[in-house]
Design a protein around this nucleic acid. Sequence first.
DNA 1: TTTGAAAACACTTCGAC
DNA 2: GTCGAAGTGTTTTCAAA
Lengths: 148, 148
Amino acid sequence: MTDPLDAAILRVLSLDARATYAQVGQQVSLSAPAVKRRVDRLREQGVIRGFTVRLDPAALGWQTEAFVELFCHGSTSPATMRTAVEQYPEVVAASTVTGDVDLVLQVRARDMRHLEQVVERLAAEPFVSRTRSTVVLSALVRRPDVVP
Amino acid sequence: MTDPLDAAILRVLSLDARATYAQVGQQVSLSAPAVKRRVDRLREQGVIRGFTVRLDPAALGWQTEAFVELFCHGSTSPATMRTAVEQYPEVVAASTVTGDVDLVLQVRARDMRHLEQVVERLAAEPFVSRTRSTVVLSALVRRPDVVP
DNA sequence: TTTGAAAACACTTCGAC
DNA sequence: GTCGAAGTGTTTTCAAA
């Protein structure tokens, strides 16, 4: 599915997704057309979901970050949870998890006041029985997707 | 620092970081050189940290994901924590947090066996007193950085 | 200051091999 | 896989708003 050459290409692109095919090719010892064909194939296969920009959240006004854990009523389906939390632009990620908590959200807010409002709205969702929030003090590591 | 035009450019790039300057320009009503100048400036300012590829973790062999919470000895500095957890390619993100836990890691592993090994190595770090892991069942939402 | 137009240069993309 | 050619995109320069 992905041979070592594909992995090498993905590693280069994860560091600079705007690198030209020629630049990528130079680093993996391949011609530009060969790189393009592999990238096109990886996109078709869904290995590559897209290309995006890495931003400084603080520079954009997102000063506060938190993990918000949701305890949900037993019968709630993941699809219901997903549809609900997707509506919140502040929700950067959401995962169902093992353990006493049902859903872990990563929430980005302008400030504490904004975070509080978001948590209150989440707590008011019909399927949510309780919330527990953990505020991020400092983001020590933040890596893009790692290629094995 | 970032006017509405910059925000519009970042929104386009967050959806497709390989869009040409002309394509971005068309969506924000600007010429290609004007877009390039703004993007160059946003990079210099650090608002744009880089461009990366969004991958399907499962397609690359990362089948298991977990939040690993670390309880650390009182005197441990964030710098110490950072240096230690950065060594692990499995650690995708690490944040110091408020509450009883000191550090929350997001860990990606090939399988449960691999995850167990990583958690054991983390637990053996000199500054770690205890760990608590929560395995991700399903990633419901995963958004790139959102531009306000 | 920031923009758009034009030109030189580099990259992409396709077909042939 | 590579090579070469035609079409595009990038990047610089320069003049104008």
